[in-house]
């Protein structure tokens, strides 16, 4: 049995990616489970989805803690302590990462021990769909790596997306995207052994009355510690030549990430700006440009 775990950010399509993979494997004749982890997750927040693929009936239930392969749909998740996408990955397992960098660079940077595959899914989606939605490329790349055939993949993308997309044209574009991903990636031999779990002391939580056990936060306004800046695909960049200091962007930022610098120009806190780009749209002087994050790094 192969066990896969998808890590994405809410809105990127991790759930649909696992469904595409699961459907494709099912069409190839395997027993399959695919399911997301439902939590209080919103756009941008780390999301997990899972798939089991097996020649025999699958008796396991529940989340996958020791996957043979992880699909990391957003490279910034590698540093996210809440997501921990590599945790539990079996020895010799596969890491598929959406990044513009090479496997060697990623391996060196993150000190990972695994077969690393990289693919710039965001770029492919932006080029072919016009939007950074990654369900199709992530599902297709995972399917190709585990050895699913082209026909099953194509049919799976059609089946899964027909219920989601309202336009036939978009569906065709997604199928095309899946097929070009199919060509860009090669299948791998995935024979893994269990990684020894890190020594983690078992913490037993005793039953306590509500005034002790219910969480009370005594810190004021500490949420900026959650660096929502890594949600961005594009960042807003101000052009001071054009800015008239009208304050429209400041008044329209839902997250309150824009303030004025000493010269009265708006400046943004990139650590927490989520990249909604409302500022870009509302600037009457068209003085804010959107720049792809990968080009800034």
């Amino acid at each position: 049995m192969l066990s896969l775990r998808f890590h994405g950010r809410g809105g990127q399509g991790a759930k649909v990616a696992s469904r595409i993979l699961g459907t494709a494997a099912f069409l190839e004749g395997f027993y399959v489970q695919d399911f997301p982890l439902y939590g209080a997750e919103r756009r941008g927040a780390p999301i997990t989805a899972f798939a089991h693929i097996s020649e025999d009936p699958i008796m396991e239930r529940g989340v996958i803690s020791d996957p043979d392969m992880v699909v990391v749909m957003d490279e910034t998740l590698l540093q996210d302590t809440r997501a921990k996408p590599l945790s539990g990955l079996r020895k010799n397992g596969v890491i598929l990462i959406n990044t513009s960098r090479t496997p060697e660079e990623v391996t060196a940077d993150h000190g990972v021990e695994a077969q690393v595959v990289t693919l710039d899914m965001t770029k492919m989606s932006l080029t072919m769909l016009g939007e950074p939605i990654l369900s199709t490329p992530a599902g297709a790349a995972a399917a190709r790596i585990v050895g699913i055939g082209e026909e099953s993949l194509k049919e799976a993308v059609e089946n899964v997306l027909a219920g989601i997309l309202s336009e036939g044209e978009e569906l065709d574009e997604n199928v095309k995207l899946a097929l070009s991903v199919f060509l860009a990636v090669t299948p791998l031999d995935i024979t893994t052994v269990e990684a020894l779990p890190e020594a983690s002391p078992v913490i037993i939580v005793p039953f306590e009355p509500a005034h002790i056990s219910s969480p009370t936060i005594n810190a004021l306004g500490n949420s900026p510690l959650r660096k929502t800046g890594n949600w961005r695909v594009f960042r807003p960049v101000w052009n001071r030549e054009v800015c008239t200091k009208c304050m429209a962007c400041l008044a329209r930022c839902p997250d309150g990430c824009i303030s004025l610098d000493e010269e009265g120009f708006p400046c943004v806190d990139y650590e927490n700006c989520k990249g909604c780009l409302i500022c870009v749209r509302v600037c009457p002087a068209e003085g804010i440009e959107r720049v792809r994050e990968a080009q800034v790094l």
């Binding site: 209080a40 500490n222 009208c246 839902p254 309150g256």
Partner: peptide
Amino acid sequence: SFRDIPGEEVLCSGTPACAGCGGLLTLR
């Protein structure tokens, strides 16, 4: 005018609300 809107942010950034949440902008 926009300039008269109180400058201090009472609601801090880093919330889990979706990017572009109109509710969050209202609350701010």
